[in-house]
Amino acid sequence: MAILETKNVNYYYQDGDQRRYILKDTSVSFEKGKFYTILGQSGSGKTTFLSLISALDQPKEGEILYNNENIKQIGYEKYRRNDIGIIFQSYNLVPYLTAVENVLVPMSITDNSLPTDVKTVAYNLLDYIGLGKSKADRLVTMLSGGEQQRVAIARALATNVEIILADEPTGNLDEEMEQEIVTIFKKLAHEHDKCVIVVTHSNEIAQQSDQTFYLSKGSLVPHE
């Protein structure tokens, strides 16, 4: 059963009095336990699509359903708070907080019920992603790019959500680091039953995913 679904989603930018369509009548669905990748040329609208399913923007027409409920009904802010985790290309961590404190931020924001000892959960998460205690207590500005992206992944997981969305999460990392991160995504989908959707330019990553969509001329088509 689909956990996330788009139904006839249209999105365009107003260009003078012309509408430049980025997405046209897009209808796709995503399931739990699967690792999805979205490929497409630069400027094709991948980030736009991700911003819609992460409720950072709204479709001009059509609807996006989470567990069959329109996210507009759920409330965009609430949906972001309780139902998804987002990972950005530029890690977007709070610079004056330590790694573990960054992981704790969404835990204080979400309405989801969490274990009482949130701090231990945060440390364990970081440890699972590959950051030991000493690094977890460091200000994030003192971590490498790869380490920072791991903190961002841990943060996306911290609220115990079922959907993980990532926009070119390895764009700033070397291949070795990229592979480690992809391995984490695969584990999240297959061992933890998450729905992982990753926008990427890399065919290698796409090949490792369960399903790849190709975005071109406003439509998302399944690859192969």
Binding site: S54, I86, N92, L93, V94, V105, I109
Partner: peptide, 13 residues
């Protein structure tokens, strides 16, 4: 700006 954007993207009121 970035920091505030992070909170908002995480669904903070």
């Amino acid at each position: 700006k970035h920091e505030l954007g992070i909170y908002l993207s995480l669904g903070e009121r």
